[in-house]
Design a protein around this nucleic acid. Structure first.
Lengths: 228, 228
DNA sequence: CTCTAATATAAGTATCTACTTGCATAGGAG
DNA sequence: CTCCTATGCAAGTAGATACTTATATTAGAG
């Protein structure tokens, strides 16, 4: 059986190595890997994970299907490599937001939303990879970390405004904000260009409106929540 | 080629007839159809649409695969029949909410959310059918109508509180509420029983907090929205 | 240059799964 | 009873697609 090593291209994060790390690679091979990943990204973005065939990826990259399997053990590995790369890159971008801590709560959360929306818009294939693709354990980990970074960002900002808020409460609200984000993102990915700006505004409003009462109504606690 | 007629079982709505409406059916056959739909619902709920094979449905129903195809032309038709049934039933339940118009805005919207959450909890397979399954045009129509009923319910309530709100604005807010609902529902369907009550409360809060500013901040219009 | 390992592919195979065929049984109308 | 049609199934077929094999070509190290 063939043994694989591959590095993730166009990504500053520590390279993800799969299988044998001792395998030598030529420059030509590295180019092919990158070309294959770019081709995969294109086709995944066009057709979604399930509709995308490995043959289509190979064709898009201008190589034979067998060549693809010189560099990736299976279809899942391609999806996982892309998903890991994107997840790490996006997490990095989120961590970089307001590292000096000069933004207000609303500004920081708005910036978080914008960064996430731009990223998804720049890499439309990320959505299907995260939602539809079966990922390797390591890619699942990266995906989960990405979610946690989003949640932690919001939780930290909430607690900065309101130190009396418990960690678990803050995390919970971060999680709900993430769910709201994802729900609207689902529509954003299929919305017509004409409808997009309004939805982007709605996204900011929805998350903001969910979070601000946590800060303003906090003294009264859960009693002020919608009853029933 | 075999010709099909089937009626949707356990559903008060007008029966959905597929193919030849003149085909005679015995009581035994009707039982089988219902058993097959029940079996399909079970397996779809357990494995999701894509992982569910027609063979598994037949096995679950205790019949051979060929028998399944006596009653349904293909896998999609099974998913479509179930999805149509559920979509109509759920739309009916939504339309029945506060038909006397005695509930407050908050109560009515809360009731809408509760009805939708209970329905999805009662029929866990509905989610995968609507999200993952390729549906027949008629089932897609029923699904789309269901979404519209949700949106219209909220839009009507918004305009009842605030008659100056334009129809399109009201509809937009209804649509965003639906996206928020779906985003949180996605997590509810996979949440542990222990986490569910808190998420249900978060669902009510999220939708409520998104909608109330539409009523209270309306005079100032979009200017009061989160800037940028 | 030469030799070895990496790269490339044509032409498959293997498997999965939706769906069929051919034939046997049953049950209601007449 | 008799016949026609609905019901039922064992044993398939067909087509899609992930993945492999055998083999040729290339290119970098020494």
């Amino acid at each position: 059986m063939q043994v694989f090593t591959y590095m993730l291209p166009f990504c500053e994060n520590p390279p993800v190595t799969v299988f044998d790390p001792t395998r030598k690679r030529n420059a030509r091979g590295e180019q092919r890997q990158q070309a294959l990943l770019r081709a995969a990204a294109t086709v995944f973005g066009r057709l979604g994970y399930h509709q995308t065939t490995t043959n289509a990826i190979a064709t898009e990259a201008g190589v034979s299907p067998a060549t693809l399997y010189q560099f990736f053990p299976n279809k899942e590995a391609i999806a996982s490599a892309l998903a890991s790369m994107y997840a790490r890159e996006m997490a990095e971008a989120e961590r970089a937001i307001d590292s000096e801590g000069i933004l207000s709560f609303t500004e920081a959360v708005g910036e978080l939303i914008d960064v996430c929306m731009s990223f998804n818009r720049k890499h439309p294939e990320f959505h299907t990879l995260v939602v539809d693709a079966p990922l390797s354990p390591s890619a699942r980990e990266d995906k989960q970390v990405l979610g946690q970074v989003f949640v932690d960002f919001i939780a930290a900002r909430l607690r900065r405004e309101l130190p009396t808020l418990s960690r678990s409460e803050a995390a919970h609200h971060g999680q709900v904000a993430l769910m709201i984000f994802r729900g609207i993102l689902d529509e954003l990915t299929v919305a017509s260009p004409h409808a997009r700006p309004r939805l982007q505004q709605a996204m900011r409003n929805a998350v903001h409106r969910y979070l601000t009462p946590v800060l303003t109504e906090s003294k009264a606690g859960a009693q002020l929540e919608v009853h029933r």
